[in-house]
Design a protein around this nucleic acid. Structure first.
Lengths: 166, 166
DNA sequence: TTTTACTTTCAAAAGTTTCTGAAAGTTACA
DNA sequence: TGTAACTTTCAGAAACTTTTGAAAGTAAAA
């Protein structure tokens, strides 16, 4: 297989994967491009390689920086900004977990706390409270596991998990 | 808080959560409704409680059954079908993991195998191969962990994980 | 201070996904 | 076999998301 064909396949698939993970297609494609690039790229180079508009390029580079998946890199003597991707896969997963936990798990836990104030006087409210209690327990457990994963360093996690699954 | 207000909040939030997880909003809302319902409901009752069309109701009940999140239940003497949700949260998570693994992780692993045939003769292809190899390693690890999680039973998983993170 | 090289914003356009409801299909019983 | 009760399908409509590009903003260098 030719390098260019491989690059295209990789960028397209990473885009599809991303859009299933709350990362929009272009955002994931930019990340893919930077991942496989040995050099930092400028916004213009990214725009041209992916054939997308300036606005789209800029917006999605900013989102990637917000998520912590891409870093700005200034080259001495150059005025424009260059960008590099976070290449450690465990770091990438961690950054995504941090964002999604904040955006999804935390609001759910808040909602569950609110609705567990429902008073139970009938079969329907008993069932409701039971389900809410179950989900709360599960979510809190997930929250604490994710916190620990995020804080644990790459090696600790890998070693323990590998031991666990062997 | 009143039961009805709690129910509404729960159904809405579950819908939002679902749509971030490859489960469309209505599909997640139907699941939420069935989760908190002590009785099996018919398609008509679901349609009416959620105020959605017949077609939408039917389509999403079928998807929920495909995902294994909802079961058909026939009542003796009744011609129509009734539906109940899977209520064990760990089962719910497992079913979602099974589907998403099949739809997302497996195609990525296939793609990575294809593109690792790229020949390296320059800095660019070396970097490409290195990144692909890294992601392949990571994905295969994830795949095997998920397989083991899916096969392990609820208690084993919980006990080990709790021990691991304490 | 003016020019130039870049970055950011945002309203409208394009693209994608989801929902509707009428029509067709199925099944069970009289 | 006919009819009524229920389920499924699908094409178009509606809702939502992403992308574009022109215009405005910013800051370094001339």
């Amino acid at each position: 297989m030719e390098l260019d064909e491989g690059k295209q396949k990789f960028i397209q698939s990473w885009g599809t994967l991303g859009s299933n993970w709350g990362i929009n297609r272009t955002m994931a494609q930019i990340h893919a491009l930077l991942l496989i690039c040995p050099e930092a790229l400028s916004a213009m180079e990214i725009k041209e390689q992916l054939n997308i508009s300036m606005g789209n390029t800029n917006m999605n580079i900013r989102s990637l920086i917000d998520w912590g998946l891409v870093y700005k890199k200034l080259k001495p003597g150059e005025r424009k900004e260059f960008f590099v991707a976070e290449k450690d896969m465990w770091e990438v997963v961690k950054k995504i977990v941090i964002q999604r936990k904040k955006r999804e798990l935390e609001p759910v836990i808040k909602m569950l706390d609110e609705i567990s104030a429902v008073q139970g006087h009938c079969e329907e409210s008993d069932e409701f409270c039971k389900v809410v209690k179950d989900i709360k327990l599960f979510s809190n457990k997930a929250d604490s596991i994710l916190d620990k994963l995020i804080k644990a360093d790459s090696n600790w996690f890998m070693k323990s998990f590998i031991n666990l699954i062997k």
